[in-house]
Amino acid sequence: MLEVDQLTTRYGAITALHGVTINVNAGEVVALVGPNGAGKTTLLNTVAGLLRPADGTVRFNGADITGAEPADLVRAGLALVPEHRRIFKDLTVEENLRLGGSTLRLHQRVSRVHEMADLFPVLRAKWSTSAGFLSGGEAQQLAVARALMCDPKLLLLDEPTLGLAPTLVDVVFDLLDRLRKEGRTLLVVEQNATRALQLADRGYILRTGHLVAEGSGADLAADQGLFESFIGGADGA
């Protein structure tokens, strides 16, 4: 479904991604883990069209989408829940959802907003509240709900549990599990590497902009050397 081939992305003088190749098949959950500064967020942002790659290609359902506008990608069925959630704090919960469905026709949008309210009862309770007043867990649910508005085939999630209390981490993982059971394809960047890999069908480990390991999620999670490959070994790698 998603094929990323030899992707290189730079910020000015910094090369954040060095020719990374990954793929995600339809119906799969793929985890992307690694320490800070590994290039995970850069990878997702490049795929979603927020950043332009310096080199390499991205294909989605067979079509070349390298450097495409996010607006076109959303219409093609690819949505990103960005790092730090980035919900619109000045807008109400309902307005956030409406904006999430900006590519839909009016009647579709209205009915989809109501579906989201059913799916996420927490949000319904805060319907007309400014999103800035939501708690961390509520905000994360809103961010996911907002991305689901356009009914994406592939959902990219960047650090969905960042800054959440442990009980809320469970809520988010339950949500991911639910999405997976619905048959959505997910590419998840997660700091909670162990749990993410346990949930995922497959995983990739990224470090300093390079791919350092890939395999089935369970294998990677069980690997005793995971921590070392993750964080840069004592012998410096």
Partner: peptide, 18 residues
Amino acid sequence: VAVRGAAEDFDAARLMGV
């Protein structure tokens, strides 16, 4: 709503398809 969203966070608004 899109204008207000874009004023707050332009990239996030683009991710919504704006």
